[in-house]
């Protein structure tokens, strides 16, 4: 703490190199910033500082950098961006733990709206495609559902930590313009909802969705997703488990028809 106070007193700066663009169709450019150091600051608080005083490293007045953030405790996924080459959440990226200059880029696997703001709509479309919910709506009370084994609940809970942040899609070499792959996150959600005793009743519908164009076959087993997931979700285990279930489902569809 004493060290940090001294640093502030001596005017220590944190250097940023930010990849920006004005509009979705505009070409990207980089702009450098030097932000006064404060103890315990994270990338979001540094961006807030730039917003307060939008002057770049050359001392020129510039347009404040746009970004998205919400919960500030790594549970919403809104502030995902590429920080020093790795996709992660800006809120949990502490300045003290980052190598400088700190490079911020948008997760360009997604359509870039402006500066660091991206559009993650494709992830929500993927959740709709695989029916990542449990249909219980109706006109009368269905009563209590079947019980879930505690041992199952424990691993299923880990899968439920997914915040649709998009880091696994950014890390995946098969999520790109030439490939229709929906990405690792929704596949793991199929495993989650198919594990649920009530969700299981519609398991075949979710498996059918995974066996469509851009479904589970798009996985090329690079396993970057499981190494990158900020929530430590066992994505590759989920994908392999769904590979088993879709394979079984394929043979059932052929032999039972």
């Amino acid at each position: 703490m004493a060290e940090a106070t001294t640093a502030t007193a001596t005017g220590r700066k944190v250097k940023f190199i930010i990849t920006r663009r004005e509009r979705p169709d505009a070409s990207p450019f980089t702009e450098e910033f030097e932000v006064p150091y404060r103890p315990n600051m994270n990338v979001i608080s540094a961006l807030m500082e730039i917003q307060r005083n939008p002057v770049n490293a050359k001392g020129e007045k510039t347009v404040p950098v746009c970004w998205e953030s919400n919960c500030l405790e790594e549970v919403c996924g809104a502030c995902s961006m590429v920080i020093n080459g790795k996709p992660r959440q800006a809120c949990s990226a502490l300045i003290d733990k980052l190598e400088q200059p700190i490079r911020l880029e948008p997760m360009a696997t997604f359509p870039v709206v402006r500066d660091l703001v991206i559009n993650r709509e494709r992830m929500f479309n993927a959740l709709k495609k695989v029916k990542a919910w449990i249909p219980i709506d109706g006109t009368y009370d269905l009563g209590p559902g079947p019980r879930m084994a505690e041992s199952k609940r424990q691993w299923a809970y880990e899968l439920s930590k997914c915040m649709t942040c998009g880091v696994c899609l950014e890390a995946c070499p098969n999520v790109n313009d030439r490939n229709s792959f929906i990405g690792p996150a929704p596949i793991s959600q199929v495993r989650l909802f198919n594990a649920h005793p009530t969700g299981e009743m519609n398991a075949h519908e979710r498996l059918d969705a995974l066996m469509e164009e851009g479904g589970i076959e798009g996985c090329g087993n690079s396993q970057n997703c499981v190494r990158s997931c900020p929530k430590g979700i066992p994505l590759t285990t989920s994908i392999a488990a769904m590979n088993r279930d879709t394979t079984k489902h394929l043979f059932k569809r052929w032999l039972n028809a």
Binding site: P234, T237, A240, N243, R244, D245, T246
Partner: peptide, 13 residues
Amino acid sequence: WAFLVSWGITIGP
């Protein structure tokens, strides 16, 4: 190796 994963034979890490 990838075949064993893609056909759901080897699942866990």
